[in-house]
Simulated scan of single mutants.
Amino acid sequence: MDTPTKPRGCTSFKVRQLSRRLSQFYDAEVSKSGLKTTQYSLLSNLARLGPSRPVDLAGELKMTASTLSRNLQPLIVAGLVAQTAGADARSRLVHVTPEGEEKRHEALAHWKTAQQKLNALLGVERVLALHLLIDESMELLGAEDVPDGDD
C-alpha cells in the first residue's frame, strides 16, 4: 500500500468517524449495565472529584455547562447523582449517590471488558500509539482552553 504524501479528506470528519465507532464499541458493552458510556464516564469523574459545583465539573471535563446539565439530568432522575445546596443559597453541589457508586462499579466491569476487546482487536501497540497521538495533538491544539459543546 502506498503511503500518501499529504492528508486526504477532512481530518475532523475522520476523527469524528473514529470517535463514533469507538463510542458504539464501548456502548455495546457498557450498556449491559444500563448506562451509556458517557454516563459511566460522568459518574466516574464525579466519583473521582467528589462533590462538585456543576460549573467546576464542566470545566474539569472540558464541556459547556449546558452540555453537562443535559448529561447530568438523567443520572439525577435515576437517583445515581444527587444535587444539594452548596456554600451559599445560590450554589449547588452534585455528587454520586450510593446507588450511583454501585451502578458505576457494575459499569466498570463492562468498560474493562470493552477495553480488553479493543486492545485485542487493534493491538496494544496501536492503542498506545493512538493515545500518544491524541495527547500530543490535544496539547498542540491548546485543548485545555476550549470547552467542547458536543459531548
Rank of each mutant, 00 (worst) to 15 (best):
R8G: 08
D2E: 14
K36C: 07
S66C: 04
K36H: 08
L122I: 01
S137Y: 09
P51L: 03
K14Y: 00
P7M: 04
A114D: 05
T38W: 06
V77K: 15
L140K: 11
T64F: 03
L57Q: 01
S44F: 07
L118K: 01
G149L: 06
A143G: 10
D27S: 15
A58L: 00
N119P: 06
K6Q: 11
L68T: 03
S52W: 03
F25G: 04
Y26L: 14
T64C: 01
W111V: 14
K32E: 15
E125G: 09
D135R: 06
T97S: 14
Q116E: 12
R16Y: 08
A89M: 13
V146I: 13
K14S: 08
R21W: 00
L22T: 00
A120R: 12
T11N: 08
A89P: 05
D27C: 13
P54W: 03
Q73N: 14
V77E: 15
E102Q: 10
G9F: 08
D56F: 09
L132N: 10
N71R: 14
E136C: 09
D145F: 06
L108Q: 13
L128P: 03
R21H: 04
A120I: 01
R16K: 12
A120F: 06
T11C: 09
Q73S: 12
L68M: 03
Q39T: 08
D145R: 14
H95V: 02
R21V: 09
H105D: 12
G86H: 01
P98D: 12
K32Y: 11
W111N: 04
R21F: 02
Q73L: 14
W111E: 13
D150R: 11
F13T: 11
I76P: 04
D88G: 08
L68D: 00
V55S: 11
L93M: 15
K112L: 15
P7D: 08
T84A: 15
D135T: 07
L132K: 10
Q73M: 12
T11Y: 09
A87M: 07
N45H: 14
R20T: 05
E136V: 13
V127L: 04
A28C: 01
Q39S: 15
E99K: 02
R20V: 05
S44P: 00
I76E: 11
G142F: 05
N71G: 10
L68R: 00
D145H: 13
K112S: 12
S19V: 09
T38M: 08
K112E: 15
A47E: 15
L121N: 09
R126N: 15
D2N: 12
S52Y: 03
E106G: 04
L128W: 01
